[in-house]
């Protein structure tokens, strides 16, 4: 679809997506409650830190880390894999394919449109983090904010493209549900969502660093809480955006090829 058509339609798509997110407000609250894992992990790791720091993490650092993890999760999460898989199975993807706009763009705007509502949850959490941790809860400089912002956008894109890839596999496999379950487990363990990735032993850490999961969660959290100097931060960002480009290309190719297999079941 042409960029011009897409850009012209984008504001209306976002507005209507927001209206839908508001209509599903109960679902949104349940989703927020379901993503409170960082708060549980915070309680757990704070208890551990009471007897002594874990690496560079004392109680205050854990508060800063897990509240940042909660915020990053709210702002980067995506449900496109499940939605796409469902729509492939039900055949309702057909209704999206009939429109002269990329279904992937439509999915993206639906996810993005939910962010303003999530900010209502994120803002007080950031305020609490600032109150408990102090200035270290957020980037210290404008440049730091810039790097954090870039990592947040990168994390959103990596998560979105992984979701597209997993959802699109429904066009190739009879069910990609189990793959999604495996993905979620890997995400929880390897991304820094349940504990900082630096807690992994060095050998495992090397593997974690080349997988995409850290760039979905750990990196933005680390940059929000000032864990890296500018140089190492830029290296990590380059790796993250490498994943963005790589996954973007692969997801788009798999999607395009997969459409030839779409059976448009039902009706």
């Amino acid at each position: 679809m042409s960029l011009r058509t897409s850009l012209k339609a984008l504001p209306t798509m976002l507005r209507i997506g927001f209206s839908e997110a508001v209509a599903y407000r109960a679902e949104m609250i349940i989703w927020v409650l379901a993503t409170t894992m960082p708060l549980i992990m915070l309680a757990l790791w704070s208890a551990v830190a009471r007897t002594g720091a874990v690496g560079r993490f004392g109680q205050a650092e854990f508060v800063g880390y897990f509240l940042a993890a909660f915020c990053v999760r709210q702002l980067t999460s995506s449900w496109v894999a499940w939605l796409l898989s469902y729509e492939v199975k039900q055949g309702t993807l057909a209704m999206r394919l009939l429109r002269p706009i990329s279904p992937l763009l439509a999915y993206a705007t639906e996810v993005l449109a939910g962010i303003p509502l999530r900010l209502l949850v994120v803002a007080p959490v950031v305020a609490i983090s600032l109150w408990v941790v102090g200035a270290g809860a957020v980037p210290a400089s404008l440049g730091g904010w810039g790097l954090f912002g870039l990592s947040l956008v990168g994390a959103w894109l990596v998560t979105f493209y992984l979701n597209v890839l997993l959802g699109t596999l429904s066009l190739y496999l009879e069910s990609s549900q189990k793959l999604m379950d495996i993905y979620m487990v890997l995400y929880f363990v390897c991304s820094g969502y349940m504990f900082p990735v630096e807690f992994f032993p060095p050998g495992v850490r090397m593997v974690i660093d080349v997988l995409p999961f850290r760039y979905q969660m750990g990196l933005p959290v680390e940059l929000m809480t000032g864990a890296h100097a500018t140089g190492p931060a830029l290296v990590l960002l380059a790796k993250q955006w490498g994943w963005v480009v790589g996954l973007g290309v692969v997801a788009t190719l798999v999607w395009r090829r997969g459409l030839a297999r779409f059976a448009a079941f039902g009706g």
Binding site: A9, P11, T12, M13, I16, E20, L98, P100, I101, G266
Partner: peptide, 23 residues
């Protein structure tokens, strides 16, 4: 047996969405 109308929004919103998408 399939619908394009947005389930929780009034049809006017789907019309508006289609206006934008079809330019």
């Amino acid at each position: 047996q399939k619908q394009q109308l947005l389930w929780d929004l009034p049809p006017a919103e789907t019309f508006e969405l289609n206006r934008a998408i079809y330019d």
